[in-house]
Design a protein around this nucleic acid. Structure first.
Lengths: 154, 154
DNA sequence: AGAGGTTTGGTGACATGTCAACAAGTCGGT
DNA sequence: ACCGACTTGTTGACATGTCACCAAACCTCT
C-alpha cells in the first residue's frame, strides 16, 4: 500500500470545478429543456440519436450502445416514451428477437421543436463562454479520456 | 424566432466529448468505488464533505448547499446512510428546527479506506492523462462556467 | 436436424431521485 | 406578546435507474 498521491492545488481545482460544472449545467439544461419543450434530458437524447439516423429508426441494442445505456434502462424508458407517442416499436425483419425503435411524427416534431432552444442553452451556459483554444482543448482532452475508457483493457 | 446557431465541428466535438466522458467516467469510477470500498458516489461525496469539516459535522442545510443537493434528497440519503451506521443526526443546540449530521467512527473509517483508491482512480482515468496546460485550462473553464451558473441572475 | 451456448429484449423487485405538502421552529415588525 | 411570513427538515407518492433473471431467437458445431 503506497502512500497515495493526492491531488495538488491545480489538479484539485480542475477536478472540483469539473464536478461542480457538471452538476450545475445538468440542473440548468434539464430545467430549461423541461420548461421549454416538455422533455427530460434522457428523452432528448433518445429522440436526438434517433432523428440523426437515415430512417429515423434503430435497433434497440444499437441505440443502447450509442447512448451507453443498459438495454434494460432503454427498454423501460422506451415504454414510457411509447406511452406518450414519441416512438414506436417494430419487429426486426430478419432477426426475430430484435426490436426496432422508430421515431413517430410526434417524436420528430418534439425534437425539432426542442433542438434550437436546447442548443442555444448549451451555447449560453457553456460553449459561448469558452475561447476557441479552450474548446479545442476540451475536445482533445475529452477524446483522450474517452478513448482510454473505451479501450478493451483500459 | 431567429435561425438557430448550430454547433460547428469543433464545438460539437467538445460537447459530445464532454458528455461521453462524463458518462464513461461516472460508470467506471462508480464501479471501482463500489467494488473496492462498498460505497456509491453519493455516499462518498457525503462522507468526503463531512470529513473535511473541522468537527466532522455539518448542518443538513449547509451540507445540502455544498453538495448542490435538495434537502429532500439529502434527507432520504442520510436515512439510508444512518441505517448503515455511517452517520448520525444530532439536534442543533440553538435552532430547534436544525439537524446536525455527524460522521460516525465507522463513517470516518469508510472514507479513509476509500479515499486513496478513489483518488488513484481519478488520476488513472482523468488527471494523469492530461497535460499541465490542459489541467489549468480545465480548471479555468469550469470555474468560469460555474461562476456564471451560480450568479444570482445567471 | 438438433444440442449447447450466446444474444436479445423484456420484466419485476428494488434502490435512488424528484416533487409537493406538511409540521415545527424562527424571525421581524408592531 | 403576538401575528404573519419565512425556513428547516421530513414524509409519501411517484418517476427514474439498476440488477438479476427469463423466454425466445439465433448461431455454431456435429
Amino acid at each position: 500500500m503506497d502512500a497515495p498521491r493526492w491531488l495538488d492545488a491545480r489538479e484539485a481545482r480542475a477536478w472540483r470545478g469539473y464536478r461542480r460544472m457538471r452538476r450545475l449545467l445538468d440542473l440548468e439544461l434539464a430545467r430549461e429543456l423541461m420548461q421549454d419543450a416538455g422533455l427530460s434530458e434522457p428523452d432528448y437524447d433518445v429522440l436526438s440519436d434517433l432523428s440523426e439516423t437515415p430512417d429515423q429508426r434503430l435497433r434497440l441494442s444499437e441505440l443502447a450502445d450509442r447512448m451507453l445505456w443498459s438495454r434494460s434502462r432503454l427498454s423501460h424508458h422506451l415504454a414510457r416514451m411509447q406511452q406518450r407517442g414519441l416512438i414506436t416499436r417494430e419487429e426486426h425483419p430478419s432477426d426475430g428477437r430484435g426490436s426496432i425503435v422508430v421515431l413517430t411524427p410526434a417524436g420528430r416534431a418534439a425534437i425539432e421543436a426542442a433542438a434550437p432552444g436546447h442548443v442555444a442553452a448549451v451555447r449560453r451556459h457553456l460553449i459561448d463562454l469558452l475561447t476557441p483554444e479552450e474548446i479545442d482543448a476540451l475536445g482533445a482532452l475529452t477524446q483522450r479520456v474517452v478513448d482510454r475508457l473505451s479501450a478493451p483493457k483500459g
